[in-house]
Write a protein that binds this DNA or RNA. Structure first.
Length: 428
DNA sequence: TCTGGGGTCCTAGGACCC
DNA sequence: TCTGGGGTCCTAGGACCC
């Protein structure tokens, strides 16, 4: 059996941890740039605050009811996420946990064959909540997709389930599938939901489970679809990952600008900053990149009242020799901006994506690089160490600029209680 | 006026090889 | 002269996830 453990309204729960007075009050957390609502509590939901909706639309409701509102504080959430996952590792053993996202993990429960899984779920939930202060819900079933179904239902009915639901018989599974709209199945997104609706006859997860594998292969993205049918029928087709994927295949740093910008200087400063950030992540995982790509997103005039994204323009460079050096990567990224930039346009967003990774060690062993490149490596690691120790990006490349008009807004961020000494929680 | 960011996997189709 | 069939690798694009 497989469990999915999921933190309830995770970002909001993190904020509540340091503001217990908000425990039964509505709370929302905003995305970067204070653009969208990315987390909301049940109380905020009850007031009609839309999930993933733009902040400015929800603002009247939020102000009317005095909903506590926070900008994203990723340092805080990352640290609390680590505490939750560490608790699970202690309880179940590292090899039985797959950390799926910042607030979710799959657990392989095959070692608990002979115990009462509902009781076991309650126990895990209890320990996590006691040790970390973060409330969680647990769904347990024979497959990942079904555990997600269980998790969703137990969240919808916290009182009766006490936050744990086990689907361990065909009858329970069938009942749960009938109570789940097909659009809420893990793996069915907007496009597929629309397609299934147009095709008629598939409204619930149960309806979908009765479709053939061949049908799903044809209509739901090939093997992805056949796996889905198998999983819904209780036959595992998506393994719990045995080893954590620590090496990313692609590293991106992209941001909306705080306001639209139009000069090439501003675009370049932003892109240089993102390249620096991406390069740091790259070095942290011990990789070097052979592909640098840059994209920019423009602001388009008048959208007729309907939201529309601007157009994106992207371009990439394949490097002759892989590198992890910030200055190298910035240099290539700057050349790409020169290609992409159009003075007649206004820009809302830009991003840098690194890919084509090789282990950084191979660079060291390369006899054909000039000796300066090895000095560069020392410079990079010194920079990373200083920035890590002081936690404030004190050492930077000049190309990233000093004024930074384009920097995103974080107007309502709470203190980084657990990761900055000078923002520690204070007790009188 | 104001709509996030960072990933993954899969498929189709083209280029190239023997 | 005959121009098949199977394999690999790459890229772009589409779908999904939280």
């Amino acid at each position: 059996m497989i469990a999915i453990i999921d933190c309830n309204s995770f970002y909001c729960s993190c904020e509540r941890l340091f503001r217990p007075s908000l425990d039964d009050k509505p709370v929302v957390v905003l995305s970067n740039n204070d653009g969208c609502i990315v987390s909301r509590t049940d109380e905020a939901k009850a007031l009609g605050v839309a999930m993933a909706g733009p902040y400015f639309l929800a603002k009247p409701t939020i102000e009317k009811y005095g909903v506590a509102t926070f900008s994203s504080n990723y340092n805080l959430y990352g640290d609390l996420s680590w505490r939750v996952m560490e608790t699970l590792r202690i309880l179940l053993g590292e090899k039985n946990i797959e950390v799926y996202s910042v607030d979710e993990a799959f657990l392989d429960l095959s070692e608990f064959k002979h115990t009462n899984l509902y009781e076991e779920g309650l126990r895990i939930k209890n320990v996590v909540e006691t040790w970390t202060g973060i409330k969680v819900s647990i769904g347990i079933a024979p497959t990942k997709v079904l555990s997600k179904v269980a998790n969703r239902l137990c969240k919808k009915n916290k009182e009766a389930t006490k936050g744990v639901m086990v689907l361990d018989t065909p009858a329970k599974i069938s009942e749960a599938l009938q109570a789940t709209p097909v659009s809420d199945v893990w793996g069915i997104g907007r496009q597929y939901a629309l397609k299934l609706k147009e095709m008629n006859a598939v409204y619930t997860a149960y309806d979908l489970s009765k479709k053939s594998a061949a049908w799903a292969h044809k209509n739901l993205g090939g093997v992805v679809g056949t796996r889905m049918i198998s999983e819904l029928n209780g036959i595992p087709a998506i393994e719990v990952a045995k080893e954590q994927l620590t090496q990313k295949k692609r590293i991106a740093c992209t941001r909306m600008f705080g306001k639209t910008v139009s000069t090439i200087t501003e675009v370049k400063q932003a892109v240089a900053t993102y390249a620096s950030r991406a390069a740091e992540k790259l070095r942290r995982q011990g990789s070097a990149a052979t592909v640098v790509s840059v994209f920019v997103l423009t602001r388009e005039p008048s959208n007729n009242g309907r939201f529309r994204h601007g157009n994106t323009y992207s371009h990439y460079t394949v490097l002759p020799i892989a590198t992890s050096a910030t200055n190298e990567l910035i240099k290539h990224a700057m050349a790409l901006v020169d290609v992409l930039y159009d003075a007649s346009k206004q820009y809302k967003k830009a991003g840098v994506i690194l890919s084509g990774f090789v282990p950084d060690a191979t660079i060291q062993a390369n006899l054909f690089v000039a000796p300066q490149q090895n000095n560069q490596r020392k410079l990079m690691s010194t920079m990373d160490n200083i920035n890590f120790a002081l936690r404030n990006d004190v050492v930077q490349f000049a190309a990233t600029g000093t004024k930074r008009n384009w920097k995103m807004r974080v107007e309502m961020r709470s203190p980084r209680y657990t990761t900055r000494w000078n923002e520690l929680f204070e007790v009188k």
